Simulated scan of single mutants.
Amino acid sequence: MNPEYAEAWNNKGIILKELKKYKKALKCYNKALEINSELIEAWNNKGTILQELGKYEEALECYNKALEINPKSIETLTYKGITLSKIGKYKKALKCFDKALKIDPKNKLLHKTKAALHKKLKNQEKA
């Protein structure tokens, strides 16, 4: 593996994540971003690991970095929306899903996710 190839570090992180070796995966994503700070996939992958570790604010920072690079990344908007919903910020999560749906209005998974979120929001407002 070429030690200066950001995509290789990102791919190694993906493998380590699948093996549930999260700390090692994070190191790989950090190395990938050190080489290429514009690599959206590494920002997204780092965010998903941080989310799984319960570090939601750090995960959101990763998604925000990715969105600075590409504000129309459906994948990033989806990850950000999911993370926001996990911490109870349903209205902000809905905004992320709405932005993603403006880009890909036929995305069935986004529509289902948004509908489930509306239901959670209604239940929260009733409490």
Rank of each mutant, 00 (worst) to 15 (best):
Y56R: 08
K24I: 03
K89W: 07
F97P: 02
L39A: 08
A25Q: 07
K27H: 10
E75T: 11
A66G: 10
I15V: 11
D104G: 04
K12Y: 09
Y22R: 06
Y56H: 11
K20D: 10
A8T: 15
A100S: 00
E41F: 02
K31F: 04
K102M: 04
L60C: 02
A93E: 04
N64T: 05
E57R: 05
Y63V: 09
T113N: 03
K112R: 12
L109A: 15
C28K: 14
E38Y: 10
A115R: 06
A25E: 06
P105S: 09
A93F: 02
K72E: 14
K91D: 00
E7L: 14
K27I: 06
A8S: 15
A93D: 01
A66E: 10
K112C: 06
K72F: 06
Y63L: 09
M1G: 15
K119I: 10
N2W: 15
I87T: 08
K95G: 04
L94H: 01
L16M: 12
S37L: 09
I40P: 03
A100H: 05
K21C: 14
K20V: 15
K17R: 13
K106S: 10
L67R: 14
T48H: 03
L67G: 07
K114E: 09
L77I: 06
L16G: 05
N45P: 10
N123F: 10
C96D: 01
A32K: 09
L53E: 12
T78D: 04
Y79A: 00
S85G: 05
Y90R: 02
P71W: 01
K80P: 04
C62K: 06
G13T: 11
N107Y: 15
L39Y: 13
K72N: 15
L39D: 03
K112E: 14
Y29I: 14
L19T: 07
I82R: 05
T78M: 00
L121D: 00
C28I: 14
K17A: 14
I103N: 13
K72G: 07
L16A: 10
K72C: 08
L50G: 05
P3H: 12
I103T: 05
E4H: 14
L19N: 13
G47V: 01
P3W: 09
E7S: 12
L53P: 05
K108F: 14
L110Y: 07
